[in-house]
Design a binder for these strands. Structure first.
Ligand SMILES: [Mn+2]
Ligand SMILES: [Mn+2]
Ligand SMILES: [Zn+2]
Ligand SMILES: [Zn+2]
Lengths: 138, 138
DNA sequence: TCCTACAATGGACAATGTCTAAGTCAAGCA
DNA sequence: TGCTTGACTTAGACATTGTCCATTGTAGGA
């Protein structure tokens, strides 16, 4: 994600080896890692990087809107670099595999006023659950 | 929820003061407490109840399908006694208030085969986010 | 090259959740 | 009613996830 690094430089970020490595780890499709998974992969590339730095960097990326936090499992937060294309998630209940999906329709329109309790509703997250092909054959 | 207690007795549960108190705490509408919130309220009614028992009891209720785990916030799991009426959630991004909602339509039908990656999809959770009336005026 | 404000580090601490060994008691039975 | 027993509860250790801070290091401009 060199374009991510470009944007961050433009926002006044100091470009450190640690931040480059975190950005590198987050690169790719269908990436939804926990903070400690990011840390483990970052350590492979830069052994002395600390947990605190990984947590700090992820938090900053979330604040800047460059990475999303998703709560697809009920344990640790997961970090999603696919922040600029709205999407939802499909999760394997067995192994935890996560895919980005793009359902048709607009779920926001499916919530009638009578079900809004006076809230201003601005966003919706949809999580599909099922069994992935791998786990189905096992 | 005396019907809940009835069902549990039918399933061979020993009826202890601790389990009665946990069931009592979970009674009501729009209830979505964390384990430690359940524990705090249980202690008001039965001061010597332990955290371990609350965690155990909640886990058993989830296994039996009498209570659902929901991941509406990205911290602790929340426990939802409204397990027998399918519903979704509306969450205040500011204060965390949670309401049960019943959107129209069927989001499962909105996920085309081409977006299923070979998964068998069995369930869908929808979380609406916004601002509650209380937080809007503040 | 030097300065300095920003960033990284290690470790303490907090919050949430899991596990176990030992003691307790609900419920069936004599 | 009073045993007996295995299910249940308890306290606290431990694990995982996340936050904070004092100290040390360094990116990038002067
Ligand atoms: Mn995603
Ligand atoms: Mn609910
Ligand atoms: Zn799977
Ligand atoms: Zn609110």
């Amino acid at each position: 994600m060199s374009d991510l690094l470009e944007r961050l430089r433009g926002r006044g970020w100091r470009m450190t080896a640690q931040r480059r490595v975190v950005a590198e780890v987050l690169d790719g499709e269908h990436v939804h890692l926990t903070a400690d998974e990011v840390h483990a992969r970052a350590v492979d590339k830069l052994p002395e990087i600390s947990r605190a730095t990984v947590y700090n960097t992820l938090g900053e990326l979330v604040t800047l809107g460059e990475v999303l936090e998703v709560a697809t499992d009920k344990r640790a937060k997961r970090y999603d670099p696919n922040a600029h294309q709205p999407h939802h998630h499909l999760v394997c209940a067995r192994c935890g595999a996560i895919r980005d999906v793009h359902p048709t329709g607009n779920p926001l329109a499916d919530l009638p006023d009578s079900e809004r309790f006076g809230f201003t509703v601005s966003d919706v997250e949809v999580t599909y659950r099922g069994t992935c092909p791998n786990c189905a054959t096992a």
